[in-house]
Amino acid sequence: MHSVSTSCTLLLAAVLAAQAPARSAEPAKPAPQPASPFGVAAADELLDRTRGGSNNTDIDMRLSGSVSGNTANNVNTGANIITNGSFANMAGIPIVVQNTGANVLIQNATIINLRMN
Rank of each mutant, 00 (worst) to 15 (best):
P94Q: 04
Q19M: 15
P37G: 07
L47C: 07
R62P: 00
S86Q: 12
I111C: 05
V15C: 10
T77G: 12
T71G: 12
I112C: 06
S54P: 00
S86Y: 15
T77C: 05
L47R: 09
I111G: 08
A79S: 12
Q33F: 06
K29G: 12
A18V: 13
V75S: 10
I59M: 00
N99T: 15
A28Q: 08
P37H: 07
E45H: 08
S5A: 14
Q107R: 07
A17K: 10
L46Q: 09
Q33V: 10
N55V: 05
V96Q: 08
G53E: 04
P27H: 06
V104M: 13
G92D: 00
V67A: 04
T100H: 06
A22D: 11
N70P: 02
M61A: 09
R115S: 10
S64K: 05
S68Q: 11
G78Q: 05
P37S: 04
S7R: 14
G65H: 01
A41E: 02
E45N: 06
Q98A: 15
L12G: 10
L10T: 11
P30R: 05
L12K: 07
T77K: 03
S86F: 15
S66L: 08
L12T: 14
N55C: 03
V96S: 07
S5R: 15
N84F: 09
D48F: 01
L10E: 15
N74G: 13
A72F: 07
Q107H: 09
S5M: 03
E45G: 06
A109T: 12
G52R: 04
S24Y: 11
G39Y: 03
N103D: 14
A13T: 13
N117I: 04
Q33I: 06
Q19Y: 08
N84C: 02
V97I: 12
M61V: 11
A31H: 11
T6N: 09
N76F: 03
A31D: 14
G52L: 05
T100V: 07
S66Q: 09
L16R: 04
S86N: 13
L47F: 01
N99S: 14
S3L: 07
M1P: 13
A42K: 11
N56Y: 01
Q33L: 11
M116H: 08
S86D: 15
M90R: 12
S36M: 01
I112F: 03
A35D: 09
N84P: 03
S7G: 11
G52F: 00
I82S: 15
F87Y: 08
G65Y: 00
I95H: 14
A35I: 08
T57P: 00
N108A: 15
G52T: 01
A35H: 07
A17Q: 07
A17W: 04
A102M: 01
V40A: 14
P27Q: 06
N84S: 12
L11S: 06
I82M: 13
I106L: 15
R115K: 04
T110F: 01
L12V: 14
E45W: 04
N113G: 02
R23P: 00
T9R: 15
S64M: 06
A20Q: 13
I81Y: 10
T71V: 11
N117Y: 09
N84I: 04
N108H: 12
T71L: 10
I93G: 04
A17G: 13
N113E: 12
